[in-house]
Design a protein around this nucleic acid. Structure first.
Lengths: 187, 187
DNA sequence: TATCGTTGTCAACAAGTGTTGGCAAACGAG
DNA sequence: CTCGTTTGCCAACACTTGTTGACAACGATA
């Protein structure tokens, strides 16, 4: 077990404030000073505990999608369950929002995003796809729809997308994801 | 007709350099100095001709999707034609990339993005959708898929999405857009 | 040629950035 | 209690940013 330090509370406060700021402002506009102010401490403490801004972001952007076990779900509901899970995960943790905002103009964040999807969505697709060779493509396509939805809803705030409630969003997106999982394209 | 000015060449060079920088770096990391250097002029000229960075971006982010007339296309090809058009438009003009990169952390750019999709995609959906009341939602859904694809391909550079050639991308995405245009969700 | 608006350069400002080092107080072990 | 370590604050650094104003070369017009 890791030893308790007297500063653990401060460390956690910094991390929370950092996630909020990165999520709201992106990497460059989220300043160390603003994060420190939110955490009610001095900016220099951020440096002491996290080294530099880059490492602070790396620590704040740690993320686990916690994808459910698809073996327990009927095959025709796989798309719906994935969409529901993503929506909930997104609403309940601002880390993903911080990640997408930062990834757009920050290569390290983009790399993190690639890793998350390759390492966490990839295996799910690999287990379900009819032809395992197409798994990476299918995982990528799911990412385009899920990230695109998050982009339009949480970042760009397109009014008709913001207006959708959870059920409507699932009803629209689930067939798309289902198709990316199982269909073979052709016309 | 607008009068010719001796500085028109410089103005155009600034605009081109601005688009490149905004597309590559986003709003904040694209500096006036870098743009001026690319255009081989002094940074102060940028201010003289465009007022400030905000207005320069507004000028650089002027964009017309040039959506084709869907009345000339068979109904079952609408999704495919839209996807093809978006892909070509995206590949041929970095303005859209600049817009998406900037929109993520810059409210004015996000507003521009909302306007473009509401004013240009909205009417197309309104003309095609079975129920006009659902047109805005359908246009928004199309935006989620198209922007999500662009995000993953050009910004995040997800390998499996970068690897898709034009035909494969169209084959995968067209049915999604077609469904967002015409289907009524339910299960 | 003399004049005036245009085009461009140079140097500087004020503000904000990440980051560093020193110093005081609080704490825990001996 | 005493001493070394941890925690925190303050002031400052080196640098970059958008932006401004003064000034020199140029071009057309009179």
């Amino acid at each position: 077990m890791t030893a308790q330090r007297r500063s653990d509370g401060t460390r956690a406060a910094i991390l929370t404030a950092a996630r909020e700021r990165f999520a709201a402002d992106g990497f460059e506009r989220a300043t160390i000073r603003a994060i420190a102010a939110d955490a009610n401490i001095d900016p220099s403490l951020v440096m002491r505990y996290y080294g530099n801004k880059e490492k602070l972001f790396a620590a704040a952007a740690e993320f686990d999608l916690r994808l459910p076990d698809m073996a327990l779900v009927p095959a025709d509901r796989h798309g719906a369950v994935l969409v529901e899970h993503f929506l909930d995960r997104w609403a309940g943790d601002e880390t993903l929002l911080a990640l997408i905002r930062a990834a757009v103009s920050h290569e390290a964040a983009a790399e993190r995003m690639r890793t998350i999807f390759a390492a966490q969505v990839g295996p799910v697709a690999a287990r379900l796809a009819p032809d395992p060779a197409t798994a990476a493509t299918r995982a990528g396509l799911i990412a385009t729809q899920i990230l695109g939805f998050a982009l339009c809803r949480f970042v760009l705030r397109l009014p008709p997308i913001v207006a959708l409630d959870r059920d409507a969003a699932v009803a629209w997106l689930a067939p798309t994801v289902q198709r990316y999982l199982y269909d073979t394209p052709g016309h």
